[in-house]
């Protein structure tokens, strides 16, 4: 059996043997970059991270937030869709009965363990009420203790608002019905 072998000519010509033409060609390139970056137009693509941030796309899945209705209540109706669909099992919801009949249920607690979260965005897709979103655009989450990564309902609701339209302060909230203050609450969180 005969194989066809291609022989590559690796013998050095005078130009390669002298090295100097090769070095000159290399120096031409490095010097072009050097002088362009020292004086004149910079080709540097570095983003100085803490001061500048890379522009993120609209679909970027960042830190979660819980959205509100026009009257300031949480949109969340504690239907457990997100908790069920979550592949990392990081969402923990406790439902409570809301005195307002139009609301029916609301989350007494809504905790996300950000250390377990894989930022897949399935909770956002599963939510029937547009109550949970990942549109805050927050890329970095760094804290010194594990407890800090357990985001509670109020933190998720209040910490980040992406734009002026969805921004509320506590003063903007409507006063809850009188009987609501007497509601049993497992964690002592004042109900909405």
């Amino acid at each position: 059996m005969k194989f066809k072998v291609k022989k590559v000519d690796r013998s050095e010509g005078l130009k390669e043997a002298l090295y100097i033409p090769g070095i000159a060609v290399g120096l031409k390139h490095t010097m072009r970059h050097f002088f362009r970056n020292i004086i004149g137009k910079k080709d540097v693509v570095t983003i100085q991270y803490p001061e500048e941030e890379r522009p993120i796309s609209q679909r970027w899945r960042g830190r979660h937030r819980l959205t509100r209705r026009d009257d300031g209540f949480l949109k969340c109706v504690a239907c457990y869709m997100c908790e069920t669909v979550c592949p990392a099992k990081c969402i923990h919801i406790e439902a409570g009965e809301h005195p307002d009949f139009s609301v029916e249920k609301y989350p007494v607690s809504f905790d996300i363990d950000e250390l377990r979260c894989v930022f897949c965005g399935l909770c956002v897709e599963a939510c029937p009420k547009q109550a949970i979103r990942m549109d805050t655009g927050v890329i970095g989450m760094a804290y010194h203790s594990r407890e800090s990564f357990n985001f509670t309902r109020d933190l998720l609701r209040d910490a980040y608002t992406p734009n002026e339209k969805t921004k509320y302060t506590d003063a903007d909230l409507p006063k809850p019905p009188d009987q609501q203050s007497a509601l049993p609450n497992s964690r002592g969180i004042p109900a909405l």
């Binding site: 970056n37 020292i38 570095t46």
Partner: peptide, 10 residues
């Protein structure tokens, strides 16, 4: 610094 300039870094 100079090697950074050659390699388009800061």
């Amino acid at each position: 610094k100079w090697s950074a300039a050659v390699q388009d870094r800061i």
